[in-house]
Amino acid sequence: MDITTLKSKKSLIWWTVIFTIFILLIFLPFYTQGYAVVLLISILVYVILTLSWVMFSGSTGYMSLAPAAFFGVGIYTSALIGKVFPFPITVLVGGMASFILAILVGALTLRLKGIYFAIFTFGLVMLIAYSLLFFEIQVTGTRGRFVIVMDYNTIYFYMLGIFMLLLLTTYLIKNSKYGLALRSIGQEEDAAAHTGVNVVGVKVMTFAISAFFMGAVGSVMATKLTYIDPFIAFSTTYSFMPVAMAIFGGTGSLYGPIIGAAILTYLEEILITKFAEVYMLIFGAILVAAILYLPDGLVGFIQKIWRRLMERNHVDT
């Protein structure tokens, strides 16, 4: 058989699978009881954060520990203007606020290399959290704020919408010349610059686009939290979890981060209420094990085994 028809047949199957999953996800709230929706919301939050993180850090190799900053900006946007504007506007503003913050941060810091960038982005989250706490206590006189409440189905549909948009954006970037530029930056930044790639521009723009989605999902998440304060909104957990989930799932493909986030969030959901310490302990152990033994993540590992099985079958026949 011709290789191209084989390829297009394969991608046709893929698209059918993806389409079916989305149809199922859209109709899910109409035929299940509350818990499945709540669980899927938690999974979607981390899936969106992880995929957004991979969009920038996975290809460029710049390890950003700033997801919590952008997520938190989204949460606060929702707390500040959620009661005034229609909700879609709030989500959009939350995303744009993070987008703008990311452009500022990116323009300042993306010349920092390696570990410095990771440290800086980590410090940024804490700086915002402590400054905001000081401001809230001194100026507004309260520590936290209440956010408008929405029902779970509505939250779910917003999350699903953001997820679909993110998936589409990631897919388009990956298959465009900018995706190629990002990978070239990750592998040999100097050579990319001398081959005509505006490295700073591409980096800052991608960083900002990924921040948009983190901010948007933050402003939806706020309505689920209902009450927030600077340390709830800017919790470093939201910076580290996406990184760990991406590493666990594998950053080489689109579905690696999704699978990684889904599995770990599910684990969190079943363990955290009763055995919070045990969950965190297992989480730490999984992270260390993944770094040691799954250099290409779970998905890379499965692909490797799959390939080996296929080869063996070939030999047998």
Binding site: I115, A244, I247, L281, G284, A285, L287, V288, I291
Partner: peptide, 11 residues
């Protein structure tokens, strides 16, 4: 190693 030490923190 940064990420591994982060895992150690949790453990």
């Amino acid at each position: 190693s940064l990420l591994a030490s982060f895992g150690l923190l949790f453990i």
